[in-house]
Computed example of a mutant assay.
Amino acid sequence: MKHSLIITLFLICFQSYGQYTTEINTNRPSLSMGAYSVSKGIIQIETGLGMQKDSYDSETYNDRIGADVQLRFGVMNENLELIADFKYDATNQTVYATENKFSGFRNATIGAKYLLYDSYKNYVDKVNVLSWRANQRYKWRRLVPAVSVFVGADFKSDKYWHPNMPAASIKGMIITQQHISNHLSFVTNLIIENAENDDFRSYGYIATLSYGFNQRWSVFAENQGYFREYEGEKIPFKDDCIFRAGFTFLVHRNLQLDISGGTGIGDNPQKYLGQIGVSWRNHKKIIFKDPYEL
């Protein structure tokens, strides 16, 4: 059943290249981060409410309700974005009919993303007035990805992580984004967590494929995996490998709704998760003026 569910879930919201886009450019409902910023002076809020079940066996499992909020703000120029990401969990843990409830912030990440390369910057798609066929050819430039880097501080709660893991650490990411066609895009994140700590350094990836049916509806399919080692003990890859999929609906150009679900491939624990969310941005850029400017 689990494997059939993974196949069924092969369904990021569709993201347009450029900086200030006509429609909202959001990371939800996937967990990957797009390469482009929200644009200078734009504030964007992306939030969701979800449930997750971690089942070790019929007598041992965790039921979790979680909320996450990501705040994005474009500053200085079109390439730089400040990001604050907060995750809160309320967990009901059952071990052989004994229940234990606890809640709190799971982790918070505060950092900045910078666009290093955009293959479409200063590029003009010229029309060949002499050849219709030349204009219809596939533009291989689409396969050249935009590339960004993210660096931030990651704060974790010992309620949800290894008790000896540092409460604060460095998180880094290389982000690529390709627009394979007018409807199809592909985003990858290469991640390092606890970068400065040899005992808990982890490497991960997120790969997100998204397809926009039209201006309002889109779907995504995503795979996330981590290679973790805690104080010399390797965590099986399959326990940290998750498939997700979902839909997005653009209410209007500054507001998007989403719904998604997913499952892990591991058995320790088996993971099933679902989430609904919303993304909103202010429709006017906030410009900070010099108070002494006439």
Score class of each variant (00 low, 15 high):
Q70G: 09
M76H: 09
E99I: 02
S131F: 11
D85H: 05
K113R: 11
F86C: 09
A84Y: 09
S103C: 08
N62L: 11
F86E: 10
A108L: 10
D89R: 12
S131A: 03
N122K: 08
R133K: 12
R133F: 12
A97S: 14
F86T: 13
E81Y: 01
A108Y: 13
N128A: 00
G74T: 02
R133V: 13
V69W: 01
A90N: 14
I83P: 03
T109H: 06
D68I: 05
S131V: 06
G66I: 05
A97Q: 12
V129F: 15
A90T: 12
D63Y: 05
D89Y: 09
N135W: 11
F105C: 02
K87T: 15
G111F: 00
I83S: 04
D68Q: 15
G111W: 00
R106I: 10
R133C: 08
L71R: 01
S119R: 11
Y88M: 09
N107C: 03
R133M: 14
N135R: 08
L82T: 02
N100T: 02
A97Y: 09
N107D: 14
V124W: 06
N100M: 03
L130N: 13
G66A: 08
D63V: 07
V95M: 12
L115C: 12
N100V: 02
Y114I: 05
L82M: 06
A108I: 10
V129W: 12
L115F: 10
A67V: 14
D63C: 04
D68M: 14
Y114Q: 04
N100C: 02
L130S: 10
Y123T: 07
L80G: 02
N100H: 06
Y114R: 02
R72T: 02
Y120V: 00
N79Q: 15
